[in-house]
């Protein structure tokens, strides 16, 4: 991995953030930001999912647990101390990392399908807890009043759009770092053959816990701005299984071997979903999601990046 390559990545990040900021200042219509926010949010979720699900091969069905937890940590911090959005996100990321660690410790000794089932159970457990937590509204949900918007932005949604764009950069940069480092190499090894990885001295449990923490923190961070975005939170929508399925489908459709995969998958699926929601109905979304997943699993098991022959195989010769 050459230095120039790294520089190119950071320049691309800066250009991306700059462009997003410019959009929020130039465009008057709010709707594109409403839709764009959702796509950015799914880029973060898919990227976060891929750190554990793609690199390590541990299929996590609990994305919605982390996402919903992020939503509710933000709600709690806002209601309790009127915390600003950055603090809400940081708090959510911290709690998400702790949950990731806990879940990892309890479940990572299980492999394959057993791990996946355990992560579904985590979603149900946390949703049940939140449903019974009166302070954040319980089962009925909670209405939230947005605070005044901050400096360069003229609407709160535009600001959240930019915040989510910043989260995309953080998530992708982390995923990219993991992928290119010894951490990624170790995760790849344990995905291929866990016993062999242990034989060669890969600290498998430590690496899996690290991946779980990172992935969990990013998922919760992605969920945190959602409360302010909707000005409402209830357990049903915050812990919706749709987040788990979408994050997984986006990563698989984009390709799990490279950090660019989940981005491509999230953009493709996210845009399709937004268009379908507007033109047909939100129910059709799920159908299309399922169809695309089947299509890709059969036709392009390595995802979009496998189809276009992305040169990710070069990585070996550092």
């Amino acid at each position: 991995m050459g230095k120039s390559n790294g520089l190119g990545f950071w320049i691309a990040c800066a250009v991306f953030l700059g462009a997003m900021l410019a959009l929020t200042l130039v465009m008057k219509n709010e709707y594109p930001f409403f839709a764009g926010y959702v796509i950015l949010q799914f880029i973060v979720l898919a990227t976060a999912w891929n750190i554990l699900g793609g690199y390590a091969g541990y299929v996590n069905f609990g994305t919605s647990a982390f996402f919903g937890l992020g939503v509710y940590i933000a709600v709690m911090l806002f209601k309790a101390i009127g915390a600003p959005i950055v603090v809400q996100i940081a708090g959510a990321a911290l709690v998400g990392a702790v949950l990731g660690f806990g879940v990892g410790l309890l479940t990572l000794r299980m492999q394959g399908i057993f791990f996946s089932i355990a992560t579904i159970a985590v979603t149900i457990i946390i949703e049940t807890c939140v449903t019974n937590w009166k302070f954040v509204g319980g089962a009925a949900g909670i209405q939230l009043q947005r605070p005044p918007v901050m400096a360069p932005f003229d609407s709160y949604v535009k600001m959240l759009f930019f915040v989510q764009a910043a989260l995309v950069v953080i998530a992708v940069a982390l995923a990219r770092y993991v992928q290119g480092s010894w951490i990624g190499r170790g995760l790849q090894a344990l995905r291929d053959d866990e016993l062999a990885a242990e034989c060669t001295g890969v600290p498998t449990l430590k690496l899996k816990l690290l991946a779980c923490c990172l992935s969990g923190a990013l998922m919760s961070a992605a969920g945190a701005p959602s409360a302010m975005y909707l000005q409402f939170a209830n357990p049903d929508s915050a812990f919706n299984l749709n987040y788990s399925v979408s994050a997984l489908a986006m990563a698989l459709i984009g390709g799990t071997a490279h950090w660019i995969g989940p981005i491509l998958g999230a953009i493709l699926l996210g845009v399709t979903q937004q268009i379908l929601t507007v033109t047909i109905s939100s129910e059709v979304n799920v159908l299309i999601l399922g169809l695309m997943l089947v299509l890709f699993v059969v036709g392009a098991p390595a995802g979009l990046i496998g189809l276009v022959g992305f040169p990710w195989k070069k990585r070996g010769g550092t």
Partner: peptide, 18 residues
């Protein structure tokens, strides 16, 4: 117990994980 989906060189690199 090799890593079948990794290249020969990647397998060797993983041998030096410590």
């Amino acid at each position: 117990r090799l890593f079948p989906k990794l290249t020969v060189e990647e397998n060797l690199m993983l041998g030096a994980f410590r």
